[in-house]
Structure formats: C-alpha cells, structure tokens
Nucleic acid binder design. Structure first.
Lengths: 334, 334
DNA sequence: TTGTAGGCGTTATCAC
DNA sequence: GTGATAACGCCTACAA
C-alpha cells in the first residue's frame, strides 16, 4: 500500500502538500494539485484512515450499537441510519449489545476506542446514570429508545405507554373485554411502558386486569408461541390478545391456529411495531406503528448536524405511535 | 482520556512496560504489573485502539460486508458471525454494499482502510476478477456466497442450483406439473443458479418450461406480490409457485389470498432460504434450507483460525441445501 | 525484567 | 502556496 510519502516523492512536492489536496482544505495551485492527483492515481494511493484518525482525532464514522444484529426491528433501524450517513460520505461501525449490561458497556467502549465521531445507541441494560456519565466524557451520542430527563437533548424516543394504550384501547373499542396480554421482558423499559399503557386502557374501560391473562415473553416469535400455550392452559376465556411486539404476535397467531382457533373470528390478535412482515401475515396484522426507520434517520441527522455541518436544524425527539388497522382484530358484537 | 504515557508516569515505570502489561505478551514482574494495573485503574485508562492499530498493523476486528443491513437473511448471517468473533474477543465492523458495484468496492476499501485483520464478504455486484485481485493485495478474506475456482480456498458457498432443483423436484414429486416460478434478480449469481435448478428439475420430469410462467422479482416481499399479479394476469393456470426466496414467497402468499386463492389447496407455494419467519407464516412455508447461520459461523472460524490461532482445523467450503417440508404444498392427485 | 528510541501514516502549526 | 517538523498514542526491536 502506497503511503502519502511515496506520493509526495513521485509528485515532487512535500508531504504536507499532498495532505492538502487529499483534504482539500487549503489552497493549492492547480498545477501542483494536478501533479499530486496524477501521482496518487499511478500509485493507486488510498489514505490510511487509521492514521488519519489518529492524527486528526476524528474518523468520519459513527458507531451504532443495537441489541441484536438480526430482527426486523434493528434491521430497519440500522439500515436507515447507514443510508443517511452514507449520503454524507460517513461510515457506520456497528456492534451488538445483546441486552446485557457488560456487553453493552464493552460495545460502547469499543466504539469510543475506535474514535467514532459520534454514537447512536440502542441501549437496554445499562443504567441511566451510565449514559449521564457518558455525556460528561464528551462523546457525542444519541440514544434512540429511552428518555432521560438529565440528558433530554440526547434522547430520541417513542411514547411506548401511549402505544400500549392505543393497542388495547382499540381492542376495547371493538367490543373486546377479555383481553390477554403478552408482554416483553419487563425489565426492559419499553416492555414495561407498553404494559402500563395496556393496563391504563383497561382501567379506562372499567375492565379489571387479570394477572393470569398476562404472560411475560421474550419479544421473539417463539415467546409468542409459548405464551399462547400457557394462556390457553389457564382455561380462562379471552377473545383477544395484545402482544408487546409483532414478532410475538406472529408466534401467537401460529400457535393459536395450531390449537384450532380461527383469527380473528375466535380470537383477535394485536401487534406492536409495524414491522415490514406484519403486512404479509395471515390475517394481516393490526398493530401499532413504531416509526423506527424515521427515528433512525433522525438520529443520523442529529449526528450529522452536530458534527459535520453548521446548519442548525430542529430535531424531533419524541415520536408518537399510531394505530394500524388491518385484519387481525374482530369487531365484537356485545 | 488517559494515555499510556500518563499511566507509565503514575506507575513509575517506562511506557514500554505498560504496553507489555496491556498486551500481556512479555514477562513482567508481578510487582510492577500490579503497580501498572493500579495506575490504569485510577486513571480509568483505556488503550486507544486506533493508535494500537496504527502501530501494530492489526486491529483485532474483522470487517463484514453484506448487501443490506435489514432482512432476515443478512440478519442471521451477521448475528452468528458477530457471536463467533465476540467469543474470541474480536470485534465486527459491519457495512453494507447495497448490491451495487461501486458501493461494494467502497465498502471493501473502507474496511481495509480501517485495517481490519480480515474480511467476510457477501458481494454480489463485483466481478470475480476483483476478488482475485483482492487476494493479491494480501488482505485475508472469505466470500460467503460465491465460488471462484481461482480462489476456492477463500470461498464458502451454497449449492444454489441443487437448491433450486430440490424445490421444484419436490413440487413435481407431489404431482404438480403447471409450476410458476418467481425468480430473484437474474444478474445475481444465486438467483440465476436457483432458476437453473428449477429448469433442470422440469426437464427431468419432461415438463416444458413456459417463459410466461416465470417472473423476475427482487427478492423482496413486494416482488412476490407483483409477481402473482402478473402471473395471474397471464390467464395461464398453475397449481404451484416456486419462489427463489422466502420473502417473495411471503409476498406471493399474501397476494394469492387477496385474489381469493386458497393455499395450498388451490395453489401451492414453495420458498427458499428457510428464514426464521417461514415457520410462522400461514400456512407454514415449505422451503429449502440455506444454512446461512452455520455458514456465517464457519466463515468466522476460518478467519479466527487463519489469523489469531495456530490450530489447524478443517473448514467446510461447500454447503448443501435441504428440503424443508411444511404445509404450503399440496399433494396433487393426478 | 525493564528502559530507550524509532516508527506506524497522517494532520496541523509554523515559518518561508 | 509550499515545506519542515512536531504531534497523535501506541508497539517493538534492541540495549541494558
């Protein structure tokens, strides 16, 4: 690999000049610029970005931390972030936190140590305090899934409680009264909040919450399956299940059908997230929209604005979930 | 951020000694080691990995390039690679190639310029020659989706033609004779090979291939939908559709139902890839297994073995697709 | 076992 | 406009 030094020799100029034309940040005469460019071409020179980072203390790349690298949710988040960054010629360095405190911290440290210019973080296991401290360390970052008052400026998030409320409210509105709930892991804030929203809606309709009709799942298809199994075994009748995410809803639908239940005629199913595949399930899943792609894009823009451009622009911090009506919920005649 | 120099000062030893305890690659007396460790702790020192990379020319990270960051296929590939790497304390740097030649090349260059120790590449648009040349540049890498004789040692791939054959062969075996085919973008090798397998199976059963019953899709759900629309419009009857991947199969199922067709009674559907969600579709999708997670893991191990350990171990290069029978194909009584 | 010093490939601050 | 020459933070012979 050619170095900047070899280029400077071939072009017959100093190393500093080559650097100037690479970065295009100082005036260089057209003539020498041409010479340098030519030399770079014949040597097939490519700047070593590690050295650039070390010297300039910036890397033109932003670090992204998601819980998992698979899953439609993280997929569309990563994808839209990367797209936005790429448009500006910035790169993404992605790593996974596995919803585990130690892993998440390691991931963040890794990204920092690679001198990412900024971080976009979907952290679940780490404490609020950790993030507050992180801010003091002067690493520019945004979190995309939580709200921490002390660092509100760095938070981009969804009103999850409202989402949970909307889902169950819709079910109630359609006449359902016996509603089972498949929650996410309740130690996760979003799962908890969605669950709270569910209970809030019930209360509003004077429907008492039955603990036995609630199952704490894992946000995966297979969790939805197990949930249905358990729920059915209680022997308690229910006409609808609200699921804390689409993946579990898919698992639930599959398990319900397996047990001979028709959807939505026997039992209605409600999802959450509005992942791409929810449009292709049978029946098409009614759900609550989580504009994760948009939020990812917003996060990327936050970073881009803060770091690489001067333009001021207003960034939306809180996003609202919205009801998506499709075919998996039955209008219930009381 | 503390530097190695400050640590050495505080510990009262030389900078070299600190480096030694960081890397644990030379003998340091217990006593000084303790001093250094203590100093590191009180300064909350973390090595700057950019500087480490520059000095040592290795980064303890491997670069991964996939076409897209979303999608269940790439998701499980990335996920399993990252898991395997993490177990060895190595990190993944992921980027997307967007199935575009320029993008793919840029991505590879980016990963190289960040001095990744090795690359795991899922390249589609780039030429074989590019990869052959890449090998000459002395960058250790594996490709996971193509076979190039000149660099066979670097290739991990699936027998796609066999897969396409298996799918259609199964349909034929069940008595289907009028079989539509939804292909992937035919400029992609795997799409092409699967299609070839399809035609091969037809020929074996003396069924003539009808060009009008084939649609070139985009490997996405929405492509499957459009395909069905087009296929139905031809007015040509068919009792089964073989899809070049599960995503399009999901779209096809959805569209078929919309048009009032029952699956599999009216029309059978066959997928390809065996993505997680295919177990949760309705009806459960019969498909062909693409062991992408295993292949990702294998790729990671190849890298790990070649780079960081001495242990010789045999690596499997070619993987075989396998039939997965579920509920979306009807046994046809002729 | 420990220290010295040169080097990794750039950037950036000076002078000229 | 252009060219020396220190950094940047760390690794690694080579010496001691």
């Amino acid at each position: 690999m050619a170095t900047i030094y070899q280029v400077s020799e071939l072009a017959g100029v100093s190393l500093a000049t080559v650097s100037r034309v690479i970065n295009d940040n100082a005036i260089v005469s057209e003539k020498t610029k041409a010479k340098v460019l030519a030399a770079m071409k014949t040597l097939d020179y490519r700047p070593n970005s590690v050295a650039q980072s070390l010297a300039s203390n910036r890397s033109n790349s932003v670090g992204i931390l998601v819980s998992e690298l698979h899953g439609a949710f993280y997929g569309s988040m990563m994808s839209d972030i990367e797209l936005a960054l790429r448009e500006f010629g910035k790169h993404a360095i992605i790593t996974a936190g596995h919803s585990d405190e130690k892993s998440e911290k390691e991931g963040v440290e890794f990204l920092i140590s690679r001198s990412c210019d900024a971080l976009i973080l979907h952290l679940e296991a780490v404490s609020d305090q950790y993030l507050i401290d992180l801010k003091k360390r002067n690493v520019p970052f945004v979190t995309v899934n939580r709200y921490i008052p002390e660092i509100a400026e760095n938070c981009i998030f969804l009103d999850n409680e409202l989402g949970g409320y909307i889902a169950t409210h819709y079910l109630l509105q359609q006449g359902h009264r016996d509603i089972a709930y498949i929650a996410g892991p309740l130690w996760k804030t979003d799962a908890k909040q969605r669950f709270n929203g569910h209970k809030k809606a019930l209360k509003e309709f004077d429907v008492s919450f039955n603990q036995r009709l609630m199952y704490e799942g894992n946000f995966q298809e297979e969790g939805g399956q197990k949930a249905i199994q358990t729920l059915l075994e209680t022997g308690i009748a229910f006409s609808a299940v609200a699921c804390a995410n689409d993946e579990m809803a898919a698992g639930a639908m599959s398990a319900l059908r397996e047990k001979g239940h028709n959807i939505p005629d026997d039992i209605s199913v409600m999802g959450f997230d509005n992942l791409v595949f929810s449009r292709f399930t049978f029946p098409k899943l009614s759900t609550v929209n989580y504009p994760i792609a948009l939020m990812g894009k917003t996060a990327a823009n936050w970073v881009l604005n803060n770091l690489y451009t001067d333009r001021e622009s207003h960034i939306q911090h809180i996003f609202k979930p919205e009801l998506v009506v499709r075919d998996s919920v039955k209008k219930f005649n009381q």
